[in-house]
Computed example of a mutant assay.
Amino acid sequence: MASVLELAKQITDEVVAPLAADIDRSGRFPKEAFAAFGKAGLLGLLVPQEAGGLGGTLEDLVAVTETIAESCGSTAMCYLMHSCATMVIAAKATENQKERYLRPIAEGTKIGTLAFSETGTGAHFYSPEIQAARDGESFVLNGRKSFVTNGDQADFLIVLTNAPDADKGLNMFIVDKDTPGVRFAGEWDGIGLRGNNSISLLMENVRVPKAQLVGAEGDGMDLIFQVVAPSFILGVSGVNVGLARGAYLAALEHAKMRKYADGRSLAEIQAIQFYLSDMFGAVESASLFARNAAKAAVEGREDAVLRVMQSKVLASESAVKVTNLAMQVCGGQGYTQKLPVERYLRDARAGAVMAPTTEVLKEWVGKSVAGVPLF
């Protein structure tokens, strides 16, 4: 049986890569890739084996997102957000939730996502304004969520709200897309990651049964920092490393194939060799750091949180650096759609502004190493 990484590589080569340019150009959801992921069982990467999944770890998530993003950042981000939603349910799943969500995910018939961000909270996604109102054995949700990756292509959403009682903290609910009162608005028209389908979720008197609550009331904050943050930060680190590697490989191929009139290749120019060296080092360093951070998280090491946070800083900054250098190597052709370098450059810029932003993470890392409380 093929390994998880072999499966991801095969689907990326056969399905993701050939469609990457079209997905970017048209700004459409990568449905073909998700169909292939589902058929291969990769949508259930993080579903426990007892629920029919692959029982993968954060190390697997980093490796898979890096592999996918090497060809298409949009597909990798959509896959990551589905994986984060899966991890949330898996962390606290009731028997009912296992049967309704985890098994279908493992079978490739359900896609999920997170609905955390709100216009008024920005990067502080862990401080929602929406409050769940209790009504008998149900909760009623009203409000709007922004930047919901996968959007209306997801079958369910993990929605973050304040608990009905202010002192209870945060709640997370599994909300099915077809629940009355749920609708989506807008379209994603970003300069990069154009296939994300990152749109707004509108909820009007959405009634959610208590059985759809993830964990107990007030578990939301713990789920954010113990489940969502590690999976998202490490996964997006993998995405950014993949984008950097894709740009580096495209630039390397161009440098070897581009010939001058005297027969010399671009790769024989010293300045280009310096650029290639810088790119190679940046990609490998960021990749190794992200994978080691994931290993530390899986092992529960004391320094895992610090390494996880720093992995996104290093990966996103490396992605910007490498894609810019790749543009220099490829020159005028890199500035056109003849080469994928300009797409990698646009996609890579998003990493630094995704919450937690680079600035927020640097503050947290700096406080952590100095022994200063985060909050």
Rank of each mutant, 00 (worst) to 15 (best):
A2H: 10
S3L: 07
V4D: 04
K31E: 15
K31D: 15
K39H: 02
L54T: 08
G55H: 13
G56M: 12
V62E: 03
A63W: 08
T67S: 04
H82R: 06
A93D: 03
Q97N: 07
E99I: 08
Y101G: 03
L102Q: 04
I105G: 10
L114G: 01
A115M: 08
V140K: 00
F147A: 09
D155P: 04
A166R: 12
M172R: 10
I174S: 05
V175T: 11
E187I: 05
D189H: 03
G190D: 11
L193H: 00
G195Y: 03
M203P: 01
V206C: 03
V208L: 01
G218D: 07
G218N: 08
G220Q: 06
F225N: 06
Q226C: 11
I233E: 04
S237H: 07
N240Y: 14
L243F: 09
Y248A: 11
L249A: 03
K259S: 06
A261F: 15
S265H: 02
S265M: 05
A271S: 13
L276A: 09
D278C: 04
M279I: 07
A286V: 08
V305Y: 06
S311I: 06
A326R: 02
M327A: 10
G331P: 01
Q333N: 10
T336C: 07
Q337P: 00
L339G: 10
A352E: 12
P356L: 12
E359F: 02
